[in-house]
Write a protein that binds this DNA or RNA. Structure first.
Length: 200
DNA sequence: TGCCAGGCCCTCTTTAGGGCCTT
């Protein structure tokens, strides 16, 4: 995939954006031609405490968040860093909710397409034991990127997985793999993937 | 009042239910 894409991951205080869930950290990896060309990572302070379960999961504490830059300024920087690049995330429906919500908090919006490595892995790697990001990374023999459940390490894992999925797709269809093609593929039901690939 | 995610996918399905995946 020659084009530039931005692979994104949020750490948050909960599952649903709003009063209960706010972003605590964002990690973004810019990928060009399958190669990581730039990285962005920042903790962010949205003015909410981090629940103990989340501290245990991510290692991100309320004290760390309190001393971080305001969420709005981090999101403005993140939006500038991403620019017009299409986005990718693992279980993108989750990260998209927080991307849209946190951007809206500082008066910004985003219209980029989101490709989802979870949906793509279910279609292209059906034999994996499960489709968690960590499992897929180990199963495919992709490099370790650091502490799981930290935003930049998870974004790098998802970027490596995206590259692997691109290579897998390339082997199965004789045409260049683009973000637009991945977005089309993830909308095809799993059972119809062979037919979809054959018609390319 | 009490509860509280939601999109996707599979199947013992489609007038539904339950598991996966993200924090």
């Amino acid at each position: 995939m020659k084009e530039r894409v931005a692979v994104i991951d949020f750490e948050t205080t909960g599952i649903t954006p709003g009063r209960e869930g706010r972003a605590t950290e964002i990690g973004i990896v810019l990928l060009e031609g399958g190669v990581i060309v730039d990285r962005f990572q920042s903790l962010m302070n949205a003015g909410v405490p981090v629940p103990p379960m989340i501290v245990q999961l991510t290692g991100i504490s309320s004290a760390m968040v309190r001393s971080a830059p305001p969420a709005a300024s981090v999101m403005r920087e993140a939006a500038q860093f991403v620019g017009r690049a299409p986005l990718v995330a693992h279980n993108a429906s989750f990260d998209r909710k927080f991307w849209d919500y946190e951007l809206a908090q500082c008066g910004l919006s985003s219209a980029q397409d989101f490709a989802c490595t979870l949906l793509l892995a279910r279609r292209l790697l059906p034999l994996a034991p499960d489709h968690k990001l960590g499992t897929l990374t180990r199963w495919a023999g992709l490099p370790a990127t650091g502490r799981a459940h930290r935003a930049l390490a998870d974004a790098e894992m998802a970027a490596n997985l995206l590259r692997h999925l691109g290579e897998t797709l390339q082997q199965r269809c004789a045409r260049p793999v683009s973000h637009a093609l991945l977005c089309r593929l993830q909308k095809v039901t799993a059972a119809k993937v062979p037919q979809f690939l054959q018609q390319l």
